[in-house]
Amino acid sequence: MCEKRSCPHEVDALCTCQALKERDKDIIGLLTHIRENMKDVEWELDYTDLSRPEKRRLCLVGKCRICGGRLCQELDASDELAGDDFLAAIYRHLYQIHNAGGRYMPSWEFRARFIHMFLEPDQHFIRGWLDRPENQHISRMYRRSVKPPAQEENAGVAVYTIVRTGADVDHGSFPTPTAEGSFFSPRGPKQNCKN
């Protein structure tokens, strides 16, 4: 569990855009730059065993569409979880991150990319896990893993979703609403971060 995971992309030239140079002063600007300019995105998961908690590395890696340098975003790898709970947590997390930018990817493609993140010996197990009835839709994965305290067992869990919508009536543009993310606190992701 104390093994440190290192990034295999450290030798690649990093993005040289202003947002990266000012990352210590403006984290929101950096995240916006990554979301708007990362192309050719690959999902990477570095782990040794799915069945036990361990230190893992879960990242989005791509190229900057402006300068061509490497852009990376490390995500919560749910190190304290294992088995079904771990798989559901990272599936939900990738789903939220991917859909926050209003990007569309068919579910079969999303699932194929999810399977491809895992080591080849585990991919058959992951396909079976995704084929289970409870894993056919993201909303079922939310209900399954979240367990309220015993005294509030029937009270349910509040989930707050930020929805972006808009219309340009003059030009006849009525885009569909997009989910920016879902959080357990109305204050957003700050409540979900570990420092």
Rank of each mutant, 00 (worst) to 15 (best):
A13T: 14
A13H: 08
A13C: 09
A13E: 15
A13S: 12
L14T: 14
L14K: 11
L14D: 08
C15Y: 00
C15E: 01
T16E: 15
T16P: 06
C17F: 05
C17G: 04
Q18G: 03
Q18D: 06
Q18P: 01
L20T: 04
K21C: 09
K21H: 10
K21V: 09
E22P: 03
R23W: 06
R23E: 12
R23C: 12
R23A: 11
D24S: 11
D24E: 12
K25L: 11
K25Q: 14
K25F: 11
D26S: 04
D26A: 03
D26Y: 01
D26T: 05
D26C: 05
I27S: 10
I27L: 13
I27H: 10
I28W: 07
I28D: 11
I28K: 13
I28N: 10
G29T: 00
G29M: 00
G29F: 00
L30V: 05
L31D: 05
L31R: 07
L31N: 12
L31K: 06
T32N: 15
T32W: 10
H33W: 12
H33Y: 12
H33E: 13
H33S: 11
I34M: 06
I34F: 03
R35Y: 02
R35L: 07
R35E: 11
R35C: 02
R35D: 07
E36I: 06
E36G: 03
N37W: 04
N37C: 10
N37L: 07
N37H: 14
N37S: 10
N37K: 13
M38L: 08
M38Y: 02
K39D: 11
K39N: 12
D40F: 04
D40N: 07
D40I: 03
V41D: 02
V41R: 08
E42D: 13
E42V: 13
E42G: 09
W43L: 12
W43M: 13
E44R: 15
E44T: 15
